[in-house]
Amino acid sequence: MSVESLPLDQKTIDVLSGVTTATLTTVLLKKGLRNVWLRGAMPLVAGRKRIVGRAFTLRFVPAREDLATPASWGSPISTRAAIEAMPSGAIAVVDAMGVKDAGIFGDILCARMQKRGVAALVTDGVVRDAEGVLASNLPVWCSGAAAPPSVAGLTFVGWQEPIGCGGVAIMPNDVLVLDGDGAVLIPAELLDAVVDAAAEQERLEGWIMQQVEAGEKLPGLYPPNKENQARYDAWRATQKT
């Protein structure tokens, strides 16, 4: 059974848009989560702005000859049908099992996703029709490109259900943040706590960078000891929240 897609409030998007994925992995590590960075999902185009959105999940399994056929593209359970269920602002997260010799989406599907307002496509697999995908202007994080279609190596089986992508367990409506360092997962249940901690961690690291540029030594500064924490707290108190 697929899970209903939930919206993500603009305040959360605004805060996380100002937090790097590197900072988020530190915050999540402090909360006991180590496996949050999706292996193999890197920006197809460098220099994309940071993207934040809820996960709309899609799942492939290994190809089986009676199921993975061009005729399956017209099935009620197909990537085409899944795209029509994607809400605006969602990030399509596709479990392609790390397969790199079968492109899960091409130019037409990416163009349709862009028209529907999908924020981005993220996969541990690859896309096809790379030039057309780039022309669609849909932001894509993936492992590269390959000419063969998905059915050459994969069978599509459903959407909005738990998946594994890049070695990370992802549930529908979890939150992803994408930037030049890749894609990082924030579990939905931890979202509020992570947002608060991430904004503060980013602020602290900004202050630490100021100290480094002023010539301060790293021991006792990063991470701050009691003295430097007190200095930071005093500085923090003078800043607008």
Score class of each variant (00 low, 15 high):
Leu44Asn: 05
Val195Gly: 10
Val168Ser: 09
Ala68Met: 12
Gly98Leu: 09
Glu216His: 12
Val157Met: 09
Ile77Asn: 12
Val19Asp: 02
Ile91His: 06
Gln239Arg: 15
Val127Pro: 05
Asn228Cys: 05
Gln239Met: 14
Thr238Glu: 15
Ile163Met: 10
Gln211Tyr: 00
Glu189Pro: 05
Glu161Tyr: 07
Lys31Thr: 04
Leu121Tyr: 10
Val151Glu: 14
Ser150His: 13
Pro223Phe: 13
Pro62Ala: 14
Gln201Val: 06
Trp73Phe: 14
Leu33Ile: 02
Val184Arg: 00
Thr155Cys: 15
Gln114Thr: 04
Lys217Asp: 13
Ala193Thr: 12
Glu161Phe: 11
Gln10Ile: 10
Arg59Trp: 00
Val19His: 05
Asp192Gln: 13
Tyr232His: 10
Arg48Thr: 07
Gly53Arg: 00
Pro148Leu: 05
Asn35Arg: 14
Val168Tyr: 12
Leu24Phe: 12
Gly182Phe: 02
Ala146Val: 00
Phe60Cys: 11
Val175Ser: 03
Leu191Lys: 09
Val140Arg: 07
Gly53Ala: 07
Glu216Cys: 08
Gly182Arg: 03
Ala90Cys: 07
Asp124Gln: 10
Glu65Asn: 09
Trp235Tyr: 15
Pro139Tyr: 07
Ala130Lys: 12
Leu24Val: 09
Thr69Glu: 08
Arg231Asp: 07
Lys226Val: 09
Arg48Ala: 11
Tyr232Ser: 02
Asn228Thr: 09
Ile186Trp: 08
Gln160Cys: 14
Leu204Ala: 05
Ile163Ala: 10
Phe105Met: 14
Gly40Met: 12
Val140Lys: 07
Tyr232Val: 08
Gln210Trp: 00
Glu202Pro: 00
Thr69Cys: 08
Phe56Thr: 03
Gly125Glu: 07
Val175Phe: 01
Lys100Asp: 09
Pro87Arg: 07
Ala111Asp: 11
Glu161Gly: 13
Thr57Gln: 07
Ala120Tyr: 01
Gly103Arg: 07
Val177Thr: 05
Thr26Ser: 13
Met86Thr: 11
Thr123Ser: 15
Leu16Lys: 04
Tyr222Ala: 15
Ile13Asp: 03
Leu44Ile: 04
Ile83Asp: 02
Glu213Asp: 13
Ala145Val: 13
Thr155Tyr: 11
Val27Gln: 06
Leu185Thr: 05
Phe156Lys: 06
Val212Asn: 00
Gly220Ala: 11
Met113Tyr: 08
Ala82Thr: 10
Ala92Gly: 14
Val127Ser: 09
Gln201Arg: 15
Leu121Arg: 11
Ala71Leu: 14
Ala152His: 12
